[in-house]
Design a protein around this nucleic acid. Structure first.
Length: 445
RNA sequence: GUGGGUAUAGCUCAAUUGGUUAGAGCGCUGGAUUGUGAUUCCAGAGGUUGGGGGUUCAAGUCCCCUUACUCACCCCA
């Protein structure tokens, strides 16, 4: 017999979720589902593992480097890096059955072999929503509205959705004769808030070798500031004479107008002409979302519009727009901000097992309450009362129901409200209706 | 993938210039209290000081390697 134990541990960047984390994590997923469904997005799922030829080479070299990829038998397979590439394959394969436009949401884990950091993991859940098969600005507007609803439904008011449009960027690049260097230029521009215009300028000069005058035209963007309306106005001169840029500016304007009309203010939605996002398939509106209290965590919800999602898999032209909520990043942020309540139970009510011989009565009471929509836990052992109470308290139960010899004799139960220690006597009638009603009114607080 | 920092009980941290058997609070298990949690008192469990190697009479402490975490790059949810 060997006493060599294997040390229990998880891989770097991979985590276990204990109940106190998994309960709020599931709640986040439920909130996301609810918001997406309220806009008519429908759920889909795809395999986590796909042929490498499907998943690789669709993003940048960097994403390929981060992809988990291996041989299984003779097959070259990979684990999905995001939910967008699988969606592209999915709609290319099924678009005849789906019909367009198609609005789907997808909650699932993705894997990236990169160096973990706070809020960055190798396995994490994304909650994507996309509208495919339409170029209408209505979808761009709704995308912003969904993000706003979602972050608010989760409980945040201090957040900023940053909005930009790739057409503006690409048009201005065309004007400055820098279209061929768009990746390098946009990458540098994306760092503007972080490293400032001077360093951005140096990086652009270095990576493109373009003349100062061209770079200066791009850096005019860093001068832009003010309210959303003022920014759009200032973009007027910068975009002038380039059709693409003017079109992008018009789209920005439409999104701002429509969302403002619905009460979305500058506090939560702001045009930021420096954001570039993704750099690969985005072609129009782009968005990212930051928590005001934790900007260093990066964007918790980003996305944008693309002209042709599935061009690698089908000749069908499938434009669309969507965004992805970084569920695990958001959860990590909430943990850091101390917004995760310490609840280790899913049942708000616990029944004490006072008298072993009354087990069937306890089971009946629990069943009655469950039938009326209350989650109830019966303590599994007939242990000392203080231990049963301790258990209820530590798990975060809100009420404990006590029924002992005295109570059964007079046909009542005691309901103890743990927060204030008060105890209420209620009749133990046929279907436990009165108990259920009493609990329901208290539990909704 | 590149560069810096950190690693002592489940958690937060102590431990004199390297010096005896590595401590505390919280948490956990039980008791005080066989009809009541959160408060109080008592007891107990829990550590090869992340792992491996080296220097030394002696290493939690110094050196090297490795792993994990963390920060900055890269990239991004």
């Amino acid at each position: 017999m060997s006493n060599q134990l294997i040390q229990p541990r998880t891989l770097s960047g991979f985590r276990d979720f204990l109940p106190e984390m998994m309960i709020p994590r599931e709640k986040l997923m439920e909130t996301a589902r609810k918001v997406y469904r309220s806009y008519g997005f429908v759920p889909i799922d795809t395999p986590t593992l796909e042929l490498s030829e499907i998943l690789c080479g669709k993003g940048s070299e960097e994403t390929d480097r981060q992809m988990y990829r291996f041989q299984h038998g003779k097959r070259d397979v990979a684990m999905r890096f995001d939910l967008t590439v699988p969606l592209a394959r999915f709609v290319a394969q099924h678009h005849n059955e789906l019909g367009m436009p198609f609005k789907r949401y997808h909650i699932g884990n993705v894997w990236r072999g990169e160096r973990p950091q706070a809020g960055r993991f190798r396995e994490f859940a994304q909650c994507d929503f996309d509208t495919i098969g339409t170029n209408s600005i209505a979808s761009d507007i709704e995308t912003v509205l969904v993000i706003n609803d979602l972050i608010r439904a989760i409980g945040f008011e201090q957040f900023k959705i940053r909005l930009n449009n790739r057409k503006v960027l690409n048009g201005i690049l065309e004007k400055a004769n820098l279209a061929e260097h768009s990746v390098a230029v946009l990458r540098a521009l994306d760092k503007l808030p972080k490293i400032g215009p001077e360093k951005v300028r140096l990086e652009m000069l270095e990576t493109t070798g373009a003349p100062d005058s061209s770079i200066d035209q791009i850096l005019m963007l860093s001068q832009i500031s003010g309210t959303n309306r003022e920014i759009i106005q200032q973009l007027g001169t910068l975009c002038e004479g380039n059709e693409l840029a003017e079109q992008g500016r018009e789209q920005l304007s439409e999104v701002i107008d429509a969302t403002q009309a619905l009460g979305l203010t500058e506090q939560n939605l702001e045009i930021d002409v420096s954001i570039a996002r993704g750099l690969d398939y985005y072609t129009g509106t782009i968005v990212e979302t930051f928590l005001t209290d934790l900007p260093s965590f990066g964007s918790i919800c980003s996305g944008g519009r693309y002209d042709s999602l599935a061009q690698l898999y089908t000749k069908q032209q499938l434009p669309g727009i969507g965004a992805s909520l970084g569920l695990d990043r958001l959860l990590a942020a909430m943990q850091q901000l101390d917004l995760i309540p310490n609840t280790k139970t899913t049942a708000e009510v616990m029944i004490v097992q006072f008298d072993k011989s009354k087990l069937s009565e306890y089971l009946k009471l629990a069943a009655d309450l469950r039938r009326q929509g209350i989650a109830v836990e019966l303590y599994p052992e007939s242990k000392k009362l203080n231990q049963q109470f301790k258990y209820a308290d530590r798990r975060g139960a809100r009420a404990v129901i006590i029924a002992g010899t005295d109570e059964f004799a007079s046909g009542v139960v005691q309901v103890k409200w743990l927060a204030d220690g008060t105890q209420t006597e209620l009749p133990l009638a046929e279907n436990s209706n009165e108990i259920a009603e009493w609990l329901k009114t208290r539990l909704t607080d």
